[in-house]
C-alpha cells in the first residue's frame, strides 16, 4: 500500500495522519464546550509570572 510493503510502516504513516485528523476533529467538537472564565486567582498568578519574566 502506498508503495510500502511493511504493514507496520504503513500503519505508522497513516497513523500519524490519523492522529492529526483526530486532533482536528477534537478541536472542532470541543471548540466552545469547555468553560472560558478567568478567575482572580488566574490573574494574580499571571501578574507574578509577568514580574519574573520582566526581571529576567
Amino acid at each position: 500500500m502506498l508503495g510500502i510493503d511493511d504493514p507496520w510502516v504503513v500503519t505508522a504513516f497513516l497513523g500519524a495522519i490519523a492522529m492529526a485528523v483526530t486532533g482536528l476533529a477534537y478541536g472542532l467538537i470541543r471548540r466552545n464546550v469547555a468553560p472560558d472564565e478567568l478567575t482572580q486567582e488566574d490573574r494574580l498568578w499571571a501578574l507574578d509570572e509577568k514580574k519574573v519574566d520582566d526581571e529576567l
Binding site: 495522519i17 492529526a20 486532533g23 478541536g27 470541543r30 466552545n32 464546550v33 469547555a34 472560558d36 478567568l38
Partner: peptide
Amino acid sequence: FMTVRSRRELDRAVPIGAVFIL
C-alpha cells in the same frame, strides 16, 4: 500549560498543534 487562560483555549489549540507537529 500554566500560561493558558482556560480549558477552552487548550481545546482550541489541539487541532493546530496536531497539524503543526505532523
